[in-house]
Every structure is written in C-alpha cells, then in structure tokens.
Amino acid sequence: MNIRVQILAVMIGLGILVTILELIRKRKLREEYSVLWFATAIGILVLSLWFPLLEWLTALLGVVWPATTLFLFGLIFLVLISLHFSIKVSRLTDQVKDLAQEAALLSEEVSRFRAQSAVPEARPDTSSSNS
C-alpha cells in the first residue's frame, strides 16, 4: 500500500480517537455512544499499521487495492453507527411521547384538583407558555 495512503489512514484513525476522547472529557458525548466510534478508530489504526492482516483480508475479499479494504471497513462501521443512532432515536421518541402524555394527564389532574379545592392557580395560564 502506498505510504501516503497509510499515513492518511493512521491520521484519520488517530483523529477520530482523539476527538472522541476530547468530547467525552468535555461531557459532550456520553460514554455509551462512544463504543462504536472507538471500534471504528481502532479498526482503522490496526488495519493501516498491521499490513499483513490488511493484505490477507484484501485477498480474502478479492479486492485489488488494500486501501479499498480499509475504506470498506470504515464504511461498514459508519453504517453500524447510523443504525445504532436510528435505534436510539426510536427509543427516545417513544420515551418523549410517554413523558409528554404523562405530563398532559398530570397537568389536567392538577388543574382539576385546584378547581375542586379552590386554590388559585400559581400562573394565569400554563398552556400559553410554549406558544
């Protein structure tokens, strides 16, 4: 493999690794979302530094150029990361829906009890605060 391609690949791998660590350090990324990113970075590093492994994989896949193998694996990991996020977003959507429904039901209950016990409302109108 061309030495320049190898240097580029190592730099990309290191770049991802450092960025992810820095994001976690600053608490901008939660640890549980970093696993696949670390796997991607380490995968790129291992494949670009351990040339015999890359050659073996290249021959196994029937690919002509070793760098293609490298990028293929990068692509596979990116697809996995996107899928992981789609699953997480679906779960978050469900949780947000449940929370909003619960908030709506509880707020109705509070105003009903307030009306019964004739306690004045703390705020004149809670529903207009988000419009």
Partner: peptide, 25 residues
C-alpha cells in the same frame, strides 16, 4: 369540557392514546 393538553405535537394516534390512558385511569 375537560381538556388534556400535550406540551408538544405528538400526532393524532398519540393523542387518541392519551385519551385511552385517561379513560383507563
């Protein structure tokens, strides 16, 4: 008439489900 207000727009199905949850309780 009684009103239950979603704080955000959730969709017609979710609104119906809120009604089912209210009726259940």
């Amino acid at each position: 008439v009684g009103v239950v207000s979603h704080p955000v727009n959730l969709g017609a199905g979710a609104a119906a489900q809120t009604g089912f949850r209210y009726a259940l309780r």
